[in-house]
Simulated scan of single mutants.
Amino acid sequence: MKDVSLKLTIAMHYASQGVFLPFLPILLKNHAFSYSQIGTLLAAGAVVGVLTQSLWGYLCDRLQTVKKLLLLQLVASVILSMYIFEINTFANLLVYLTVFYVFFRPLPTMFDTLIIQTISANPARYGHYRMFGSIGFLLTALFSGYFLNWFGLSKGPYLITGLIGLSLLCAVFIQDTNYACQTPRFKDFSELIKQPAILQFLLAATFLGTTHVANDNFISVHLQALGGSLKDTGLLWTVGVTTEILTFAVLSQLNLQGKSLYFLRLVALLYGLRWLLMAFITDVKVVLLIQVLHGICYSLFITMIQQYLVVIIPNQLRATGQGLMYMTVFGLGGVIGMIGGGQLMERFGSSNFYLSCLCFALVSFFTFQRLDKDRV
């Protein structure tokens, strides 16, 4: 039952993301915000991630509980999500979203910590649990497009709040993390982030994470600019997440331990190919086809990162390591991707936006390659 509760909690959280991520940029655009303002509003979450992810993780390790802090975050997220779109001015919305993200943004870190605890004997099973998040995302990305197209974008916030509430309900029944090691000291954390191999790994992953987050936050607007409808937006995410589920399912059956850096180099090249195609393709149907690469790239990327973290992060800093990864890869990378992406889209257009992503992917490839050589 507790194992099922964890899977359902993850599914409900990513189901809320299935509405929040694809349609938030469109909702903001309908509120007459510019591309650069949208980029700044979206980047608020990434900035908060940079400032708080490791802190939440360290608190979990220090207090030796993940569940209690997770429930606190979910309760706050439910309450705050109710009023996000009641605010129409840029400055006020920026402040409100920042407060909301303090609680909502770290949730994937908490879920991944619980997953890693559950699968500690077999890290390859990460994809099995994470697949349920993709299923939740898929269902809402598919049906919310039709729902919002029929009832209007103004109903989007109700979907988001309801799904976060369901995640909270399921989380009540999950099993807390079992810490079988001593409480970490701050000195342990400071020594961890001084290790060159860890810093180089996080740098390489952040370059790639920057492109992923930038695309996630602007692809819906890009598709609309190409003439796509709200249904096309829902279908876009459906295609990507369907391949994500299939890839997670395949990866959970394979034993790829010890090969993480090899596959991270491979996924950097796949991301590069994806951005190259997106830079020049303007046909909506072909863009939907390219989205197949989303699932393959993201599933392989996050699974290999998690497998490598299990190797390089001490057990007593399990949640701290997760927070550090999310802080840099999707936090710092998100800040660069969303603010920089908004500026690129507004000033230079989509083609240059995706060519910039291609350059970042190539830098990531060579950094992973150097890390692998240094390790040998």
Rank of each mutant, 00 (worst) to 15 (best):
G295R: 15
S350A: 13
L72S: 14
L355Q: 12
S134N: 04
G18V: 02
R375I: 04
L202W: 01
Y326I: 08
M345I: 05
Y326C: 07
V287A: 14
T161R: 03
V221K: 05
A43C: 02
F301G: 09
F189L: 15
I84R: 03
G337N: 02
N315K: 14
F132Y: 13
V78M: 02
N178I: 14
F33L: 01
C181L: 05
N255T: 12
A46I: 01
V329M: 10
I296V: 15
V221D: 04
H294D: 13
R318C: 05
Q64K: 02
F104I: 03
L358I: 09
T238D: 05
T161N: 09
A319L: 01
F103M: 00
G57W: 07
F20M: 15
D61Q: 04
V48P: 01
V292C: 14
C297H: 02
Y179W: 11
F100W: 03
C359E: 11
S351L: 03
F218N: 04
I302D: 13
I281W: 15
N255G: 06
E346C: 14
P157C: 06
F368I: 04
G136E: 05
L42S: 01
L254Y: 11
D283K: 10
F90E: 00
A44G: 10
A180G: 12
Y262A: 15
I281H: 13
F90A: 00
M338C: 07
L6S: 07
K187V: 15
M82Q: 03
T242A: 15
Y58S: 06
G228S: 03
S36K: 08
F147M: 13
Y308L: 12
I164N: 04
L362N: 08
S81H: 00
L114K: 07
T303C: 09
I160R: 01
I135R: 03
R130T: 12
D188F: 01
S154F: 05
K285W: 15
F23V: 13
P106V: 06
W150C: 06
G133T: 05
L51M: 07
D216G: 10
A43P: 02
I160N: 01
T177N: 15
N92D: 00
V102I: 09
V267K: 03
I160V: 13
L203S: 04
P184V: 08
C359T: 15
R62N: 09
G57H: 11
F111H: 11
